[in-house]
Amino acid sequence: MSDSAEPTTWALEIDCRGMRCPAPIIELAKRHTEVSVGQLVAVVATDVAARVDVPAWCRMRGQEYVGESVADDGTPAFVVRRVS
């Protein structure tokens, strides 16, 4: 899914539109535990740094980066699976 813009369903959408780095990653860190292990979280962000920093956060925190999708309005959504 990494390179497709196919809409995916996720358990939680974190609205980070208009936020600048590192705010989207801070929101992700604070809120990803709201979903159960195995469920998906989407970080919806306009900040270009999120494209790099969401996967990097997953690597550093042992979470799974699923790929990039889009929210209903076409804003990039960076999808993470909670694995722990």
Binding site: C21, P22, V48, A49, V52, D53, A56, M60
Partner: peptide, 24 residues
């Protein structure tokens, strides 16, 4: 190399190409 410190407001293309954290 963080975006907020760059005149372009883009994160460092070096850090991005490596896939490492660009903020902080």
């Amino acid at each position: 190399g963080s975006a907020c410190t760059a005149s372009t407001l883009q994160p460092s293309h070096v850090l991005a190409a490596m896939g490492v954290l660009t903020h902080g």
